[in-house]
Design a binder for these strands. Structure first.
Lengths: 347, 347
DNA sequence: TTGTACGCGTTATCAA
DNA sequence: TTGATAACGCGTACAA
């Protein structure tokens, strides 16, 4: 690996001159020397040492991307195509802007912050952070942070949130379900924090507006840990037939649920209508194809990275960016079954 | 961000002493000073500047992870749960070993190599590289490289390949299909390089062994680019009924194909049997559940990272590591349809 | 046991 | 237009 110093020595000039040519400071150096240096640079295939550069400039050109995994969700986190699509969008944007991406997955906010401090990253993208983490992060770290899908960090300095019309999207979908004639509609999720809370709220608003009552038990809680999910699904399927439709908080869960129902002889949508949220590949490939709320996940990644890049350059940005959602009507929501028919294909 | 120098000044001692305490060189420093320094370190929450450290030590503690995307496959690359699961395994292993992971996606081998050179990464994990890239990479870069699923790099120095019993796994599956009574079995993929070649070979071997003839046209070529896939699928479905079973090179394609067939009224497995390879979430959630060749993708990531770490430490490793596969028999391969029945559910 | 001084590769400042 | 030199923060050989 050749260094500037060595190049300077071989060309009989100073490191300054070489450095100037490398950085295109054309005013500082004569055309002839510039030419000479450039040729030599090509010849030896000079590659700068970023560590030295960062040390001298006190910057890193690194964007830290931290996924905060919940203990009970780690497996799913990394299985969900959501994540890879998001990362894809982020990586592409970062790379094109001449930055580098360091990826870090952890359950521990503290560790994440140490990590970014060590590397002196120029900015941080956080995904999967819950409310209470915000303050802790905030005090440790002075550089721009963009959160994805994190509610209730508003007001905290350095923070920008990139989110969705979660509430409205779910509201629209449940309204659509109701317009199909459904009256007993459950909501399926594994928690009621952050994004899930917003979607849950949208669901309840649609119910209320239609004069439908919401009872606590209409919230179907799925436990995604691999050693609990079967039992969890068993119970949910048992209770499913109390409803004619289930609004799922994600496509992942919607598809998981449809499989479980199918295995128990309950047909979708004849026996029960199912709606998802995300519009990922799994939902679109499943048959019957999933009716769902679309979000552009890659775009979410791109916008997050772009916003962070702007903030790094010192430009002002909105404290919260809200991306649109839209309904994708496919085949899993239809009219409710007749009360006499339970949709069982075998019994 | 506090520096060693500053700490030394405040404590009235030399930087060496502080440094020694930080690195636990207990023999070099008296218990009292050690205690004093440690306390102060905690108090000010000292975080080393990695750039300076790397510069001084000429190492980086960074593992570069480069995904080489094929032009026509980028979208799928990042959609396939395969990738996120693999990354998950790699990241976890790297992190636990005290290393950092830099992720880079590019179509251009040259760019990937520049990237790793600049950062002086301690080692490299390459995924998606094709045969011809090998040599180019090899000459540029002297540090350990672990490839995932790259055939024909054997013999190249610095390289280790982590792969699968691709040929055998596919052979086993096709043999299983044949044992179900099938005689006309197609193979679906988008190319015949690397991994796909190995699987293709396994398919042909099983055919041959059973005295079945393979014709060129039995290779069904899918074109995965988003603006071509519909047309491609249309043609494949038209030709599908010349066969009673299709061995797909991946679960992703198997599920995609099943959807397309279903949409055209062809039922799986009544009309045609389908087998996949990978055993991912999509295939296991699809109904009918996909019969497929299982590989442990996360494990692949873990083993790759572990192997690289070993090589970085100077330990010898096998030039090629081959992970096992096994058949997962589910519901998409059954006896072939009667020749009079074409499995159409509507026409 | 502690401290001094230098090198790592780069950029920046200032003088020639 | 060019060059000498300091600085960035850390680790370490070697001296004290």
């Amino acid at each position: 690996m050749i260094t500037i110093k060595e190049i300077a020595a071989r060309l009989n000039m100073s490191t300054t001159t070489v450095s100037n040519v490398i950085h295109g400071k054309d005013g500082e150096v004569s055309p002839e020397t510039r030419q000479k240096v450039k040729e030599f640079l090509d010849e030896v295939d000079y590659i700068p040492n970023i560590n030295a550069r960062n040390l001298a400039q006190n910057e890193s050109k690194i964007i830290g991307v931290a996924l905060k995994a919940r203990a009970d969700k780690y497996e799913n986190l990394i299985m969900d195509p959501f994540v890879s699509e998001l990362i894809g969008g982020i990586e592409e944007t970062i790379r094109k802007a001449g930055y580098f991406m360091m990826l870090y997955i952890s359950r521990d906010t503290e560790k994440i912050m140490r990590h970014v401090s060590t590397w002196n990253v120029d900015g941080l993208i956080l995904f999967g952070m819950l409310d209470d983490d915000g303050v802790r992060v905030s005090t440790k770290y002075k550089k721009p942070i963009v959160c994805i899908d994190t509610y209730s960090i508003e007001g905290l300095k350095h923070f920008t949130n990139v989110g969705l019309t979660d509430e409205q999207g779910t509201y629209d979908m449940v309204k659509y379900i109701i317009s199909n004639g459904h009256k007993r509609i459950a909501f399926l999720s594994d928690n009621t924090n952050g994004v899930d809370y917003a979607r849950f709220t949208g669901y309840k608003r649609a119910l209320m507006e239609a004069g439908l009552e919401f009872k606590e038990e209409d919230f179907l809680k799925i436990r995604p840990k691999s050693d609990e999910i079967e039992e969890s699904l068993e119970e949910i399927c048992r209770r499913a037939m109390d409803y004619t439709a289930i609004m799922c908080v994600s496509d992942l869960y919607a598809v998981t649920l449809m499989s479980a129902l199918t295995d128990r002889g309950i047909r979708v949508p004849e026996g029960i209508s199912i709606a998802g949220f995300d519009d990922n590949y799994m939902g679109s490939m499943y048959r019957p194809a999933l009716t769902t709320v679309h979000q552009d996940i890659k775009e979410k990644g791109v916008v997050s990275a772009q916003t962070l890049l702007k903030r790094i350059k010192g430009e002002k940005t909105e404290p919260r960016i809200i991306l649109p959602t839209r309904l994708v009507i496919r085949d899993t929501v239809t009219k409710p079954r007749k009360s006499s028919f339970y949709g069982y294909s075998r019994l």
